[in-house]
Nucleic acid binder design. Structure first.
Lengths: 302, 302
DNA sequence: TAGATTGATACCTTTTAAGTATTTATATCT
DNA sequence: AGATATAAATACTTAAAAGGTATCAATCTA
């Protein structure tokens, strides 16, 4: 049984004329007669009732015509969808993101990609920063969106967005009354930060920023949820340095302030070099053009 | 694109080893390599990532494997169902029956056939006796179940069942009091019969039966519904001769009586000689063995 | 670095499909 | 009813494509 024979039969079933069907198939009549006869022989079923003057389908032939058409259409669809997958237009892209990315670069990045490739399914899952590398290497996710951190060999990184740290202080705090805050103003204040265990990169960044300005932060609390940091600040438990995009929270009791000379938080995409998911290549190409034009990440409210 | 190539690819995708896949396919390794390469070339898609030591599917390859398996299974199913149709095990049998058949031979005949060929769909439709021939010739139905009547050339007939006419008289009628009735007892009684226009065969049969016994029936009413005949008899409007299977009605007010020397009503199957529906052949074969053993048509109550 | 394994390539043989010419059967027209 | 034309089947030849054997190239293991 051969696809050629199916195509021949379908055409013949639709014309009910060997000569005309052969012409449509761009072959001469004898090979068509032979292929049809061979197919009937192989099936053990008479598909056509033919005289030298008239050709008509048998009941089995009508059924086989319908079925063969479906099979041919199914193969055609299979070829097209496979090609679409190769082009990265169809498929599944699994994205692991950290909480910090969810507040800044993730939403516009995913929206831009989804608009460009509406047939690609994006599966988002939150991962802890320290778990991201393993998820990428094991193939559990195709792309990670996070701060760059020590990368094992085999993982690639591309920066997508950068924003400075900003200060967040309780509204009732004396610093909230000042028009401008410097990093050094936070010296001696109780700090609420990300834990070194789950988000080492961000933890280091905040501490490094303080050291840049000549003091060691007094860490009172650590929590890996950024919203919780802001909540705790709003409760008056301390101050913090967080990515500027967190300012979108606008939580009553917490004030965000730009600080001169703050370290820059970079967000980017991490992926396994060997990952051949075509969706990933499209996603990266999409992200490469990201950030040109107006920044999609909110500025500080003024 | 060729079925052979699909089979080759599916086997290869399942073994991920050219040598072993080739062995499973009963070919040597080089043609397998070439066919797969040709298929990838035709698709324009890399389905496999191969080194000399390791073969693995790409994302597109995984998808195509799944799709190709489906296509192959679909073709296999198409072949099997087509063969089932050829054998008459699958398909549609359209049966046109007359009211008289519905009371006698139709139910057990259809049951026997349906039990033997549960995958064949039986479409039953009631037709008037005079319309049956046209329905058969036009192909609207595959088989008719009715009294034999003048058959145009091209229609075949096979008797399935025969039963005598019996008398039906009002319970209050003097004849209902007699232990036995002869056909000639009905002479002079008002008759209720089938109309000549819709059921000519039965009409003729009843009149002929009377003539056999030396009288011309006095027809008072004609109705093509047999139940209505019995109803009208029960109302005391007349007497009639009906097929014995009608006695199953057991309608209050009407008495059925066997009559000696009554004509025989034959029921049979009529079909178009050129009808090649394999279900018809099976149905006829099924009907051919019918009637052996206990008659499935009810006897007169005694 | 040697050997073994495995997929690709080169070259030849076999099989299969297509083309041309012809035959056979049947409907239509005179 | 016989001639003619039409259409499918058959016979034979040619072309294409699929398979086989031998070998190469690359890579992993020892």
């Amino acid at each position: 049984m051969d696809f050629r024979q199916l195509r021949y039969f379908v055409t013949l079933a639709e014309t009910l004329h060997f000569g005309r069907a052969a012409a449509l198939l761009h072959i001469s009549q004898p090979p068509l007669s032979r292929q049809i006869a061979a197919m009937e022989e192989e099936l053990g079923v008479a598909l056509l009732k033919r005289s030298t003057r008239l050709v008509e389908l048998t009941a089995a032939g009508r059924h086989f015509h319908e079925q063969a058409s479906r099979v041919i259409a199914a193969l055609d669809a299979a070829v097209r969808s496979t090609q679409a997958i190769e082009r990265g237009e169809l498929g599944v892209l699994r994205v692991g993101f950290t909480m910090s990315a969810a507040w800044s670069v993730l939403p516009p990045l995913i929206r831009q990609y989804s608009d460009a490739y509406p047939q690609a399914e994006v599966q988002l899952s939150e991962v802890l920063p320290r778990e991201l590398n393993d998820a990428l290497i094991s193939g559990a996710v195709d792309a990670g969106i996070a701060f760059p951190w020590q990368r094992p060999p085999g993982l690639e990184y591309m920066a997508v967005h950068a924003e400075p740290l900003c200060a967040v202080v309780p509204s009732a705090h004396r610093l909230a009354q000042l028009p401008e805050i410097a990093v050094s103003d936070l010296a001696g204040e109780p700090f609420i930060t990300f834990p070194a265990t789950t988000a080492p990169a961000l933890h280091e960044l905040v501490i490094g920023c303080c050291r840049d300005h000549g003091f060691e932060p007094q860490i009172r609390l650590e929590t890996h949820l950024q919203q919780t940091i802001v909540n705790l600040v709003a409760e008056g438990l301390g101050v913090s340095l967080v990515p500027q995009s967190m300012a979108r929270m606008r939580l009553a009791g917490a004030e965000f302030r730009e600080v001169a000379g703050a370290r820059i938080v970079e967000q980017g995409i991490i992926w396994a070099a060997g990952n051949d998911n075509p969706c990933l290549a499209r996603f990266l190409a999409c992200a490469r053009g990201f950030g040109a034009g107006a920044s999609p990440v909110a500025d500080l409210p003024r």
